[in-house]
Amino acid sequence: MESEENKNIHWLVRPPTIRLLWIVMFLILGLVILLQFFAHIHGHFIIDESFGFNAWYGFIACVLMVFVSKLLALFVKRKDNYYDD
């Protein structure tokens, strides 16, 4: 079902497509977690074998890195003509 205004924009960026992409993404995320029931992750440090470890660890690591970069930006961010004479 396409409205008139959607016809002018590329199919990939129409709101229904974007909604679909989010749904597909969450389905895939769920699948890779469930995959762990079938594929044994051979760990070295106990915790890395636990269920869904890589998922939450990767997510939290990224959130932390973005947070740290925003914090650093408070000190080092300048207008991009800063070095121009």
Partner: peptide
């Protein structure tokens, strides 16, 4: 599986 979890959640 471990890598897919790690990267997709990133």
């Amino acid at each position: 599986t471990a890598y897919l979890q790690l990267l997709l959640f990133a």
